[in-house]
């Protein structure tokens, strides 16, 4: 056997021969491009990738990546991926999903996947709308939103995906935006490196049914003031270094730096702190800048590893003899 060497790929190696059928201008293109770029540099053989998806625009993702892929049924990608990863821990398993697929029909599977901490990487494309079914409100649509199914405005209280994930004890929660090239890649790299379920929320623009959904946060002119780019161990500063996040009691507050207030007075990001993670997950515009990057990362044992440890232990100590299994404990012999 030859010594395995890390394969050398370019982004092109992860582009499939399928014609991409997303609408021109869709944010999904940018996410696909960043994922292909990151996959190429991970040093994982292409055949070891399995991309699993449910239903929705985002769930067409596997067709466009030259790896093993499975476009399953609505909401169930997490469960399919759990079965795959548990039985094939050698694979790098990624789930592409959307706000409807993951948070509505697949909500149950999502929380249990996070709770179990199956070693998967979830990319949740959040565009706050149902795109493939042509424009109904989603579980992340804002209250009052007028859509085809909410002509008088939505009255559903929306989920905060990161808070939901942390509520299910996710071991990794991160956030980025389709048009943030560098930051998005960083988050995908961190997700790939994390052992356990990596939950990545990606703000994504649906230019047909919910155009400009994230502009108020992500436009170049306002981005620095309305996003908080997190770095582990660093104080939480934004607004071109002029603003920071401070803790008053149990609540965060936005402070203007200067006048005696410096970076040293600001909250320091600690990815491993569950309580801090909960605070960050609830920070939302306009009261706060929206945290970007890794909100929470606290490795714990993965479900798939523990299942396979039990299997190995049972095999080491027990019998694999099928005949004695069939015979059981009490038999009698007729001569």
């Amino acid at each position: 056997m030859s010594t395995p060497e890390a394969p050398v790929y370019t982004k092109k190696d992860f582009m499939s021969d399928q014609i991409i059928r997303w609408c021109p201008g869709c944010g999904d293109y940018a996410i696909l491009s960043q994922a292909q770029t990151v996959f190429a540099e991970l040093g994982i053989p292409r055949e070891q990738f399995a991309i699993i998806s449910g239903i929705g625009c985002s769930s067409r993702f596997p067709y466009y990546i030259n790896a093993y892929g499975f476009h399953t049924i609505h909401g169930r990608a997490f469960a399919v991926a759990t079965g795959l990863k548990t039985s094939r821990p050698d694979l790098s398993v990624w789930v592409a999903t959307g706000d409807g697929d993951a948070l509505s029909i697949g909500g149950n599977h999502l929380i249990h996947c996070l709770r179990r901490n199956v070693d998967l990487n979830i990319l949740l494309f959040n565009n706050r709308i149902y795109g493939l079914t042509k424009g109904q409100y989603s579980p992340t649509s804002e209250v009052g939103k007028k859509t085809k199914s909410t002509p008088m405005g939505s009255i559903d209280h929306p989920f905060m995906p990161a808070a939901l994930a942390l509520g299910a004890d996710a071991s990794f929660v991160a956030r980025s935006v389709d048009i943030f090239v560098k930051e998005q890649r960083e988050v995908m790299r961190a997700a790939a490196a994390h052992k356990g379920t990596s939950f990545v929320e990606l703000y994504q623009n649906c230019n047909i049914f919910n155009d400009h959904a994230w502009d108020q946060l992500t436009e170049k002119a306002v981005r620095d003031d309305r996003c908080l780019f997190l770095e582990h161990g660093k104080p939480m500063i934004f607004g071109a270094g002029k603003k920071g996040i401070k803790l008053r009691g149990l609540r965060p507050e936005v402070v203007e730096l200067g006048d005696g207030l410096t970076a040293d007075d600001c909250l320091v990001h600690d990815e491993t702190d569950d309580f801090l993670g909960a605070i960050l997950a609830r920070m939302d515009y306009p009261a706060f800048p929206v945290p970007m990057g890794v909100l929470h990362r606290k490795p714990r044992a993965t479900y798939d590893a523990m299942v396979n440890e039990q299997l190995a232990a049972a095999k080491a100590s027990g019998s694999a003899d099928l005949q004695s299994l069939l015979l059981g404990k009490d038999t009698w012999t007729v001569k």
């Binding site: 499975f70 469960a79 759990t82 039985s87 599977h109 299997l311 027990g318 694999a320």
Partner: peptide, 22 residues
């Protein structure tokens, strides 16, 4: 388990079959 049988008690009937499909 000593016979290599992997069992997964799923969160619901749908996850039970879809995990098996995976």
């Amino acid at each position: 388990k000593s016979h290599g049988v992997c069992t997964f008690q799923a969160e619901d009937e749908i996850a039970a079959i879809t995990s098996a499909i995976g």
